[in-house]
């Protein structure tokens, strides 16, 4: 496995849930570019992303992350009762940014006529598109995307792929956990295969 200085690093990290180790002694350096995490269900991919995002307590080891992170989970993480525009404006303003870019970004994701509709009235794919628009609005250096292609049609999948590659080309660090999309393998700087809480370079 590469050991270059990274934007995020984990050293001998162990995560335990309900007395069961989910991640075991994992060391990892993630630098700018695309990192792919693959592995079967229950391998620990989501937990690994959440550890990097600082959302999970670690039982042992060290975690270091430079700069802000944007974690988008396998669900869209939008608050019901608010519109897509209101949700994204909230996230943007929370980071101290202006929310002027929100409408344009949502338009770019094909939500022109739907951005002022409550998110529970959007389809799963539309909610996913709205969530992914955060990548272009919040512009943080480290993106953590868990199954970003879920619920999307062909057009949406292409749009997500373009968005990931665009972020990578801007020099941002993009970590993607996904089962499918083998075409990303050739574009990734680092590929990890997770199995039973252990990662190895693929």
């Amino acid at each position: 496995m590469r050991t270059v200085q990274g934007d995020a690093s984990l050293r001998d990290v162990t995560v335990i849930f309900d007395d069961r180790p989910i991640i075991r002694g994992l060391s990892l350096e993630i630098t700018a570019g695309l990192t792919l995490i693959r592995g079967p269900n229950g391998a620990g991919k989501t937990t690994l992303l959440r550890v990097i995002a600082g959302m999970v307590p670690i039982a042992g080891g060290e975690r270091r992350v430079d700069g802000e992170t944007l974690y988008i989970g396998h669900r869209p993480m939008l608050l019901r009762g608010l519109t897509a525009r209101e949700n994204l404006s909230f996230y943007s303003r929370f980071r101290g940014l202006q929310d002027a870019a929100v409408a344009d970004a949502l338009r770019g994701w094909g939500l022109d006529g739907k951005m002022d509709r409550a998110v529970e009235r959007l389809s799963a794919g539309e909610r996913r598109r709205a969530a992914m628009a955060r990548v272009e609005i919040e512009r943080v250096p480290l993106l953590l995307l868990d199954e970003p292609f879920a619920d999307l049609d062909e057009g949406g999948i292409t749009r997500v792929r373009d968005c990931i590659l665009s972020a990578r080309d801007e020099g941002r660090t993009v970590v993607v956990a996904t089962h499918g999309h083998p075409e990303l393998d050739a574009l990734a700087a680092l590929r990890l295969l997770m199995n039973e809480g252990v990662a190895r370079a693929a």
Partner: peptide, 21 residues
């Protein structure tokens, strides 16, 4: 309950300063 639907709470927690706010 509303925060837990679609994991909106996780998005808030993942923001810098989200837990405190």
């Amino acid at each position: 309950d509303r925060e837990l639907e679609d994991d909106a709470l996780d998005a808030l927690v993942a923001l810098p300063g989200g837990r405190d706010a």
